[in-house]
Design a protein around this nucleic acid. Structure first.
Lengths: 254, 254
DNA sequence: CGTACTATTGAGTCCGTTCAAACGGGGTGG
DNA sequence: CCACCCCGTTTGAACGGACTCAATAGTACG
């Protein structure tokens, strides 16, 4: 898959941090001094090819990955060869910020597409939490947003059927990509295979295909050649029982 | 269900913090000054009756719940009346510490049994993170441990069948209760209904009943009248493909 | 000693799987 | 330039795990 020429050239060093700041400022104010401190911790982006393992489960870590462009996943391989993806990361996400406190990962970080990643050392994060407590709490908040996503996925896998589950995933990505300016109400670029989607949803690729057809025939959404085209967002959200509350898109009180 | 006389009388005010410290010290050293700071933030336990909603989704919050005794759940109600539990909290757990950064919850906190809860104000947590950065990071770690649990549950719901899923849950609780001295290799007290278990596993109560029978007939584990009796822990773990890695039971490097 | 909840078991159904085959498009080498 | 191949997609047919519906048994409590 053509890596798209767009990503073949290194993105600006600041792009990842820009998007991270967009996400944080959606939830709270970040002053100039803090912005400066955040900008100081990111290093120039490095390219990881599609399907490569960026961080392997269990390995001792001293840095965290800020995704600048592309899509990353957290995924677990089972002994029988099955795989479950537990989160899809979009640009601006810290894919493994939790390793700052945990010092290793419980799951692999795998590139779903070619990815540019800006590494951040735990030493610099340590300094930030020491000298900028508020910024430290904002980073903490970031990992708690991941937790909220995890809970929403648990609910989907536990209580929604295949159609609703797929609809919910597509709704979630629409919102999360919109935050960083990579989606609108009409759709977004999503260079995943149906197998990737199946691994997110706890389904087989065959069934994902059938369910995609169902969504298409209902006029709700079409997924073809790496693009999600939304036909009826309101109905799609209704079908999925999708609500943005769990994404915490508002500024916090006080 | 008899609330057991043990819990009918208020537990010592320090019990919740004691158990929290046990959990934290498993992962890193806590010095005397820090211990003092932690002990200072907990208030005398309050009783919540079984099945009561301790914290409701969406409500603005200024405090977090430290569970002293009993079992709490995080759960989501669907519009069709179904419910999914996304985490079961054991004594010593901060059930909604993530609300310190998020300021509201995306899911309800519901008492599965009578529960004694010690409340902690966000103001005092704020002060702790300002004055004790290391302790702040330890609290952050605590919420990241919840994230790891969520990911493990997502994997279970996505890729394990009913038998494996149930086995995995029982293995997880065995370890987490052991940490706070409430379980051993032979079993533990677990005052849940089969419906509660079904809501954890994304199954129906009827099927949980059948699968419990299967586990019992295989001699792996018996669940009766609120007690889990483990017949063969090694085989149970093997069936569930259970591994304690995701629980981060070791001290962090450095 | 009735009432209400929980647990248990059976029979039939359905959603998603498995197995299998065909199709399509983009890249590569002869 | 075409033939081939690989990978992802699409469709069909049969199977099976978990559900639904329903009835009965057990247990705690007032």
């Amino acid at each position: 898959m053509a890596t798209t020429a767009i990503e073949a050239v290194a993105p600006p060093a600041a792009l990842g941090v820009d998007r991270l700041l967009m996400k944080m400022r959606l939830r709270d104010d970040i002053d100039d001094l803090e912005e400066q401190a955040v900008r100081a911790i990111a290093t120039p982006p490095v390219l990881y090819p599609s399907r490569s393992i960026v961080v392997r489960e269990g390995v001792p870590l001293e840095r965290s990955a800020l995704l600048v462009s592309g899509l990353l996943s957290r995924s677990k391989d089972m002994r029988d060869g099955q795989r479950q993806i537990t989160e899809v990361h979009v640009p601006g996400d810290f894919a493994d910020l939790h390793s700052f406190t945990l010092k290793r990962l419980d799951q692999d970080i795998v590139a779903l597409t070619d990815c540019w990643i800006s590494w951040t050392t735990h030493a610099s994060l340590h300094a930030v939490t020491d000298h900028h407590p508020h910024l430290g709490r904002m980073l903490w908040l970031t990992t708690n947003l991941d937790g909220a996503l995890h809970r929403a996925w648990t609910v989907s896998l536990g209580r929604r059927d295949a159609l609703e589950r797929l609809a919910h995933l597509l709704c979630e990505l629409q919102v999360r990509l919109s935050i960083v300016g990579m989606a609108d109400e009409r759709g977004y670029h999503l260079p995943l295979t149906q197998t990737d989607i199946a691994e997110c949803l706890g389904l087989t690729p065959v069934h994902v295909n059938r369910v995609l057809r169902e969504l298409r025939e209902r006029g709700l959404v079409t997924f073809r050649s790496g693009r999600v085209s939304i036909g009826n967002l309101a109905e799609l959200r209704n079908l999925a029982e999708f609500n943005t509350d769990y994404l915490f898109l508002e500024k916090r009180p006080r």
